[in-house]
Design a protein around this nucleic acid. Structure first.
Lengths: 388, 388
DNA sequence: CTGAAAGCGCTAACAG
DNA sequence: CTGTTAGCGCTTTCAG
C-alpha cells in the first residue's frame, strides 16, 4: 500500500492538501481535487492515516511521533508541537492492531454468555454488561462478548486464549465448581468474577451480600408485625444460595423467632417452581400458615404473585411477598414488588478493577468483595405504599 | 523474546520435550523438566507457540506452515502431514493479532448500547446480543460491545473506526434520522441495523413486521367477538411505530369495522404512560368504551394490566389486553399476556448476514428485510387458556 | 533530543 | 513444491 506522501508527490500537491482532497474535511480547488484522486487511484491508495503520514507532515521520524503520542520519551517543545499539529491536522489515531501486536496484548476483555432458556431470565445481566463495558473502557480496554453453550463453555474460552484474542475474562453467572474458573485458574489466565464458586478456590470476585440482603427484608417483615415468615430459596449447594437462606435465619434469630422447617422451601430458580412452593405453603393449617413469603429472586416472586393473584389473595394485605434483584418489571407489577436492589454499576466497576489489578499484576488490598444490596420497599409487603 | 527452539537448544532437549516440560501437557523426566525451566528462566521465555515453533518442529519454513494452515497454496502431502502433526503436537493456534495486522482487518464487529433508563426496558436486546454473537462467530468474527451515552453516541463510533478497532457495526434501537446511521453512511463504514430509520436512507436492515403483527392480534380480537378495540401506540413519527398503528387499521378495515379516534392513544413507550392512556379509555361512556386494548409493546401492556388489576377489572373476561415482543416475564404475569413473538435468533442471523455481505462486498438479493412475528395467544385475551 | 532499525506474528509475492 | 523476504503499524532499544 502506498503512503499519503507518495500520493501527494504524484499529484504535485502538499501532503495536507492531498489529505483534504481525500478526506473531504476541507475544501480543495477542483483541479487539485481531481489530480489527487487520480493519483490515489493509480497507486491503489485508500485513505488511512498512519504514523508515517504524521511523521512526513511534521518532518520528523516515526519514532519521534511515537514518543510524542505516548509521552514515552523526552521531546523538545518545538518538535512536540509540530508533531501534535500534524496529528491534529490529519486527525491521526494510532492503529490499535499495530500497537497491540507490538505489545503482545489485545486490550480486549472476554465476556461469554450462554443462552438463557425461557422461564429463566437474567434481567440483571444486560445492565451488568453495560456498566462493565463502561468501566473497562475507562482503562482503555474493550469488551469482546462471545456466545457459548451452557454445557461446554470451555472450548470457547480456550479458543480465545489460544488465539490471543483477549487479555483476560470477566465471568458472570458463576456456580459452585464452575468449570470455567477451574480452567482459567489452571491455565493461569487473568480473570475476575461476578459471583462466587466455592471456598477452596482463591480467585478475585465481587458478589452481592445476599445474606445481609435477605436478613434486611426479613427484618422488615418482622417489623411490620409478621411472625410466620416463609422462605422460598434455591436448592442447597450454592454458596450464594445458602448465604441467602442464612440471612433469613439471622433475622429470625435476632428477633427471637424460631424458624420452622415447614416454612422453608428450596426449589429451582423458576417462577413455576416458586408458585408450586407457595401453593404448598398456603395449604398449611391456619395456625401455622405463613403470612409472608420471602423469595430469593424476583423471578420466583413474580411466579408466586401470579399464583396468589389467581387465588384471589390480596397481596400486601393477606400475604406479603418479597423478591431479590429489582428486575425492571418489578415495580410495574400489581402490586409493585418489594425487593433488594443490587448496585449493579458499582458491582461492575469493582469486578473490572479486580481484573485490571490481575492484568497489571498490581496487588489489590482485597480480592474478594461483597457488596450490600439496598432494600426497596413497595406495596407487596407494605400496602400503604400503593400508588393511587 | 526467545523462541522455543532456543530454549530447547540451551536445555539440550528436543523441541517437543521442551514444549511438554513447559506446557505440562505430557510428563517429562525430572531432570529435563528442570533444565528446560532453567533455560526458559534465563532466556526470559514464557510459553507462546508461534508459527516459527511449528516450522522448527516440522523442519520447514514459516511460509509453508502458513500455506498449510490456510490451504492457501499447494503443498506436498508429506510436508503437509508433517506440518499438521507439528501443529497438533504443539497445540498451535495462529495469533489473531498478527493475522489481523497483516490483513488490515480485525474480524471484530462493534455493537454499542446506551444505558436503558428505569421504567423503560429492552428485554429483547440481551437475547439479540446472544444470537448476534453466535451468528457473527459462525463467520469467524467476534463482537466488541461498547457503551455510549444516549445523547452523543457518535464519538464512541468514531473512535472505534479511527483506531481500526472494528471492521463494521451492528446497530439496534434505531430511530428516525438516527445520527449513527447518518454518520456511518457518510463515513462509508460497513454496518447493518436491527430496525428502520426513514425511507430516504438506503442501508441494510432487518426489522420485525409490526404492521402485520398488530393486524394479526387485532384480527384475533375481532374473531373473539370484540368490536370496540382500542390501540395504545407510540407517538407519531417513527417508521415502525406508525407501521404498527397501520396494522390496526388494516385489521379493522378487513372486518369492515370503522376506527374511532377516541380509541387511539399515542403515548411514550413506558408503562405509566400506557396505564394513563388505559385510564382515559376506561373513562369513555359505556356505549363507546373499548372492550379490548391492543398495546404496541409488552412494557406498555404490563403497565395497563397493573392498572386494570388495581381497578379490580378481570383481565381477559371484562377487558382483553395484548402486547408485543414476548418479554420473558409476559407469560408469568397474571393473567399471562397475549403477545407477538419476534423470532429473535432469526432476526440476528439475518442482520449478521447483511453485514457480512457488506464486508465482503457481496451483492445481497435484498438489503431490507421484514420478518413476520408470531401471535402467542394467552389468557389476557382468551381466558380459556388460563393455566389451572 | 532525534533517527535508524529491529521485531511483535503473520501472509503473500517472488525466487529458486 | 518450498524458502526467502518484504511488509502490515507500532514501540523501543541503540547510536548519533
Amino acid at each position: 500500500m502506498a503512503t499519503l506522501k507518495e500520493v501527494a508527490a504524484q499529484a504535485h500537491v502538499p501532503l495536507l492538501t492531498a489529505y483534504h482532497a481525500l478526506s473531504g474535511a476541507q475544501a480543495v480547488p477542483e483541479a487539485q481535487q481531481r489530480s489527487v484522486h487520480a493519483a490515489a487511484e493509480t497507486l491503489g491508495y485508500t485513505l488511512n492515516i498512519t504514523i508515517k503520514d504524521v511523521a512526513a507532515l511534521a518532518g520528523v521520524s516515526i519514532a519521534t511521533v511515537s514518543y510524542v503520542m505516548n509521552n514515552s520519551y523526552p521531546v523538545s517543545e518545538a518538535t512536540r508541537r509540530r508533531v501534535l499539529e500534524a496529528a491534529t491536522a490529519l486527525n491521526y489515531r494510532p492503529n490499535a492492531n499495530g500497537r497491540n501486536l507490538q505489545a503482545s496484548k489485545t486490550r480486549l476483555i472476554g465476556y461469554g454468555w450462554h443462552n438463557i432458556k425461557r422461564g429463566q431470565s437474567a434481567p440483571l445481566l444486560d445492565r451488568f454488561t453495560y456498566w462493565m463495558a463502561q468501566a473497562v473502557e475507562s482503562y482503555g480496554y474493550h469488551v469482546l462478548t462471545f456466545a457459548h453453550t451452557e454445557d461446554s463453555p470451555i472450548d470457547a474460552y480456550q479458543e480465545l486464549i489460544q488465539t490471543n484474542r483477549v487479555d483476560g475474562f470477566i465471568l458472570a453467572h458463576t456456580n459452585r465448581n464452575d468449570a470455567r474458573i477451574r480452567h482459567l485458574l489452571e491455565a493461569r489466565v487473568p480473570f475476575a468474577a461476578f459471583g462466587r464458586a466455592n471456598d477452596r478456590w482463591n480467585f478475585p470476585y465481587v458478589d452481592v451480600d445476599g445474606r445481609h440482603g435477605i436478613a434486611l427484608v426479613t427484618s422488615h417483615l418482622i417489623s411490620l408485625g409478621h411472625t410466620r415468615i416463609a422462605l422460598i430459596g434455591w436448592p442447597e449447594g450454592s454458596l450464594s444460595g445458602d448465604a441467602r437462606v442464612q440471612g433469613y435465619f439471622d433475622a429470625l434469630d435476632a428477633a427471637a423467632l424460631s424458624p420452622q422447617a415447614s416454612w422453608i422451601r428450596r426449589v429451582e430458580n423458576t417462577s413455576t417452581a416458586a408458585a408450586a412452593a407457595a401453593a404448598d405453603l398456603l395449604a398449611l393449617p391456619t395456625q401455622t400458615r405463613p403470612t409472608a413469603l420471602v423469595c430469593v429472586s424476583d423471578l420466583m416472586a413474580i411466579g408466586v404473585m401470579s399464583y396468589l393473584n389467581r387465588c384471589g389473595v390480596q397481596i400486601g394485605y393477606d400475604i406479603a411477598v418479597s423478591g431479590f434483584d429489582d428486575d425492571p418489571v418489578s415495580e410495574l407489577l400489581y402490586p409493585p414488588l418489594t425487593t433488594l436492589r443490587q448496585p449493579i454499576d458499582d458491582l461492575a466497576a469493582q469486578v473490572v478493577a479486580l481484573l485490571m489489578a490481575e492484568l497489571e499484576r498490581l496487588p489489590m488490598p482485597q480480592r474478594q468483595i461483597l457488596v450490600a444490596p439496598e432494600l426497596i420497599v413497595r406495596a407487596s409487603t407494605d400496602p400503604h405504599r400503593q400508588v393511587p
